[in-house]
Amino acid sequence: MRGQVSRKTILAFIGPSVIALAVIGIAPLLYAVWTSLHFYNLTKLRQVRFIGLENYQTVLTDAAFWQAMGRTFLLLATSLPLQLALGLGIALVLHRPGLTLVKTLTRLSLVLPMATTYAVVGLLGQVMFNQQFGVVNQLLGQNINWIGNASNAFAMIVFWDVWQWTPFVALVLLAGLTMVPGEVEEAARLETSNWWTILRHVQLPFLMPGLVAVLILRTADTLKLFDMVFTLTRGGPGNSTEMISLLIQRVGFRVFDQGLASAQAVILLIITIVLARLYIRVFYKEV
């Protein structure tokens, strides 16, 4: 049948994306896999040699790697529930009828934290949480050592992550709430005035695709979180805020051991893919 799209057209449409993906994504990935199988230190290029899975063995038995991974998941486990709770709260408030102008302004202002560059957030944090001159201590009337104390520094990272990404969760969930057919929600409200029942049985099914997207995106973002922490604490004090991406950067670009850093990155990639598949299998259901 002549109505079919020709092969050429298909190739012309898909080709550029496939090429771009191959050049930007696939080729560096394959190169990283190749590097991870070699002793490859930028300052010892004369000694580059194939060492099989030795780098992977080093990573898997390295306490520093698993500690950094643990810290990263601890950040995810503390900041994500906060973001979901606060985001859902904001979305439900914005979903209520009335006060159109205020809600429009609120929606607009929600975009601001997301539009702030990660590195700038870190620098802002440094200034605001400075023990002596920071506005936070001034407001609290306290002399809290935020950046130089291990637990406080971690709490500060959680705070900034929540500040920056709660609006994103709120906007995604708000979009989900607007998907609920008006008559269904209205009928539910006639049946019960319990907001939890409506949320659980009427709204939640429509929120699930958004929630899964948020889970996947925020997990991936947290696993690769670098700029904000680097500018704020540089992984310190000690290694109390050294997330997995900071460790990889340190090994790859400060120790210059690109082989080991590549092995760490490949393992991180595998963990991310497994998690993403898990999220989709457990949570995702078509409405």
């Binding site: 300052t43 010892k44 520093a64 291990a150 004090p237 000690g238 290694n239 400060r254 120790v255």
Partner: peptide, 22 residues
């Protein structure tokens, strides 16, 4: 020597942790 960049990272980590009493 050429190995200092690797060694300084180790000193930085444990030197700081010593000071923090960890």
């Amino acid at each position: 020597f050429a190995e200092w960049p690797e060694i300084t990272e180790i000193v930085q980590e444990f030197g700081t942790r010593m000071m923090m009493g960890e």
